[in-house]
Design a binder for these strands. Structure first.
Lengths: 199, 199
DNA sequence: CTAGAATCGGAGTGATCACTCCGGATGTCA
DNA sequence: TGACATCCGGAGTGATCACTCCGATTCTAG
């Protein structure tokens, strides 16, 4: 059901997809990811279909709604982001893991339009979705580790950290943003996140 | 001519508008400001016309293009913002003026959708427009004052400050944003902007 | 190989939008 | 007050989208 809602149409009964259907599904997913990354949610279904080399009917058979397609891609992206966060939680240095993750997210945002951007631009309520919660937990763990390691101030809580993260990601998508500006902006935010007297 | 560029159609030759035309013009402007504030650039012309109590034809006579209407409103809003910034430059305390302005902008953004948001959502190049430059200058002046007063670190330049400002404004428009979260977020950013060891 | 089911392709549908056009209403000036 | 330029209203236009439908095509089981 969660799978069906996420765009797993055609597999409602659990029957495996035919080989060509499976092939087309990933083609559509790839084309849509590229199109959405480049033009945001304004990318039209027809142009996605053309890029994927299939007809629009095929796109809509796999993803009954444009929203479903959007959500499938966002969940995939969220999972990737989440995987990095989890890896940093498990294996990374707690003192730097949080900052590494923050910087990486912002860097991604400059190239691809942000997950969050697509979310609220379409008014899709993904707040309660499982992957979002997982990401929240992972970032929370990184934040906790950094606080315990003394590299992030103790009074910095998750909501404001997420606000800073999404805000900076959005700023990164604007014209004139480059690596130098990114460094300078992150320097200020990171300094603000450090404990008093620990620059 | 600035007026004509800003959507002053019908006054091309400089002839003053008829009384009813003038009245309708401000009605449209007011309705459009409210509609754009509530729904962003997605607000349709017809609903703006209805809210203003006029026909769509009237809207398009005054503002030949939706873009013109958008720009007229943004320029007006920019001018207001600019006026506050200038007032703080002239009369305020340089040590706090910059922070006051920053906080005020973010607070505005939570209620009305940001100027910047409307700008790039429609792909309108307002970068070179005169009011934008004026705002840039005003914020630059506030920043200079604060740096000289020692309340902002000397290595914080205008581009990253504007990135932080627009990013935070955008974060402020998201769900779950309230006064408490605003304070906590601004605390972190402001601390990051302060000189080392000056919390 | 073949029957039959699963899938495909893309013209067609209905809705929405920005924008146009012109007969009628209204303000203005003598 | 009357004549006339100006302005108004809103039905109409063409373009764009998300989404549907069904004959043609392709896969797969036997």
């Amino acid at each position: 059901m969660a799978k069906a809602a996420a765009g797993g149409a055609g597999a409602a009964g659990g029957r495996p997809l035919r080989a060509d259907a499976r092939r087309n599904r990933v083609r559509v997913l790839d084309a849509a990811e590229a199109a959405f990354a480049a033009k945001g949610a304004a990318a039209s279904t027809e142009e996605i279909a053309r890029a994927a080399g299939v007809g629009v009917g095929t796109v809509f058979r796999h993803f009954p709604t444009k929203k479903d397609l959007l959500m499938a891609i966002m969940e995939a992206r969220l999972e990737r982001v989440c995987a990095l966060a989890d890896a940093l939680v498990d294996e990374g240095d707690p003192a730097t893991g949080f900052f590494t993750f923050f910087g990486w997210m912002v860097e991604q945002a400059a190239a691809k339009r942000t997950v969050m951007d697509l979310v609220d631009q379409e008014g899709i309520a993904l707040e309660r979705a499982e992957p979002t919660q997982a990401l929240r937990r992972a970032v929370g763990a990184l934040l906790d580790g950094a606080r315990r390691a003394g590299t992030v101030r103790p009074d910095a809580a998750l909501p404001e950290v997420l606000a800073l993260l999404t805000g900076t990601c959005q700023a990164a998508m604007r014209a004139g943003w480059d690596a130098r500006l990114r460094e300078r902006t992150l320097t200020i935010i990171f300094d603000g996140l450090r404990p008093a007297g620990a620059r």
